[in-house]
């Protein structure tokens, strides 16, 4: 949903870092997007291309890794992926907060974040 503004923030942050290190060019940016974020990789790529034009990031590779969300059950201690409702009418499995192991309600541990992991720069 916020691919434009979030990608612009990513580009800004990488540029700031590159300027700080007096980099000549940025070659690669490695992004990690949690599954619960409303960020569609295809649209992030599109915006990245637009926003890096005429900057030292132009032509750099954007690598996006989608991280699965993890949950934890306070009742039985289960830690791992969500339980999904797989209704064909929904086209994609819908994550729920039901514990896959017991009747408890899980808490979200990760998946609601977006990290710039590493940046490859020519310095």
């Amino acid at each position: 949903m916020h691919e434009g503004s979030i990608t612009s923030q990513i580009v800004e942050n990488v540029l700031r870092e590159a300027e700080k290190r007096k980099a000549k060019r940025v070659l690669e940016v490695h992004l990690e997007i949690g599954k619960l974020m409303f960020l569609n990789p295809e649209q992030v790529h599109f915006w990245y291309q637009m926003l890096t034009k005429n900057t030292i990031l132009e032509g750099s590779q954007l690598l996006i890794e989608e991280k699965p969300g993890t949950v934890k059950c306070p009742k039985c201690g289960y830690e791992g992926d969500f339980q999904y409702v797989d209704d064909p009418a929904l086209h994609m499995p819908m994550p729920t907060l039901n514990c896959p192991k017991c009747d408890g309600t899980v808490k979200i541990v990760s998946g609601k974040d977006c990290f710039i992991k590493t940046v490859k720069m020519l310095i």
Binding site: I6, Q9, I10, N13, V14, E17, R21, K24, R25, L27, K112, D113, C114, F115, I116, K117, T118, V119, K120, M121, L122, I123
Partner: peptide, 17 residues
């Protein structure tokens, strides 16, 4: 060859922080 050296920089920066 481009002048300079290539560095991998760990940022680990949370965009929504």
């Amino acid at each position: 060859a481009e002048e300079g050296e290539i560095f991998d920089i760990e940022l680990d920066e949370n965009i929504l922080k």
